[in-house]
């Protein structure tokens, strides 16, 4: 099998790892897009958070209380952040949908999860990169967003999901003991996030970001603000 040339993506990846600065990596469909010029309304889909405690043996125990609180904190932080960028904020909870437009919403959500899986695979895993997609970001969710524009007036849809884990007392003890007595590194909690912005008028994914790090904390409001800010790195809105 012939080996392809090194893609720009890999070079960028290599560069940021060497600089130890790649907690996030984002893509833009159009580098000139700037939402702060038009201040469009943005529909925020319910934040999908899962917070878990990492046990000594490496099991993840989902914590419902942390998860519920984190969804609140992140929602609040996101609202603040977007308002700071000059955007208008539309919540899906307050929007009114009849049955037909509700079906469009679920179709859009299903398309989003399917296309996100394709993006994660083909834009973030270098061995799965698609040559025809090199140097461009070209992903679509279909026409279902138009029903949402009609119902809410929002022009863009924002999807956020975060998986966050924290070392529990047992794990902390193991990490400390292993590092002190054996000099061995045992990993602690991780934060993995994904955010994407979709143009509801044509279904194009205009911005996509992925966050992955051994830091961040969604259990506090200050931590959530930091996480949201990091997760929105490269968001196509430049405040004047």
């Amino acid at each position: 099998m012939p080996c392809p040339r090194m893609s720009r993506f890999v070079l960028a990846m290599l560069g940021c790892i060497l600089l130890a600065a790649c907690e996030t990596q984002h893509f833009l469909a159009d580098p000139n897009l700037d939402l702060s010029r038009t201040n469009p309304a943005i529909l925020v889909f319910p934040i999908d958070a899962t917070l878990a405690e990492l046990t000594a043996g490496g099991s993840l125990e989902i914590n419902a209380l942390w998860t519920q609180q984190a969804e609140g904190f992140a929602d609040e932080a996101l609202r603040k952040h977007l308002l700071g960028l000059g955007g208008k904020f539309v919540e899906i909870k307050s929007a009114h949908f009849d049955e037909a437009s509700l079906a469009k919403v679920s179709h859009l959500v299903l398309m989003h999860s399917t296309v996100s899986a394709a993006i994660s695979r083909h834009k973030y895993e270098w061995s799965e990169a698609l040559p025809t997609h090199e140097g461009r970001f070209d992903w679509w969710l279909g026409q279902s967003g138009q029903a949402i524009i009609e119902r809410t007036g929002a022009r863009y849809g924002l999807f956020i999901s975060v998986r966050d884990s924290y070392a529990g007392p047992g794990r902390v003890m193991l990490i400390v003991s292993a590092s002190l007595l054996l000099g061995v590194y045992v990993p602690g909690g991780r934060q993995e996030g994904q955010a994407s912005l979709v143009d509801l008028s044509d279904g194009r994914v205009v911005w996509f970001n992925r966050l992955s790090r051994e830091a961040g904390d969604l259990r506090t409001s200050a931590g959530a603000e930091e996480t949201v800010k990091t997760l929105l790195t490269g968001f196509p809105a430049r405040k004047p």
């Binding site: 046990t55 000594a56 043996g57 099991s59 047992g170 193991l174």
Partner: peptide, 13 residues
């Protein structure tokens, strides 16, 4: 399962 895995982790330590 969590307890078994933790026991094993400490054991391997």
């Amino acid at each position: 399962i969590a307890q078994t895995k933790s026991t094993l982790a400490w054991l391997s330590f």
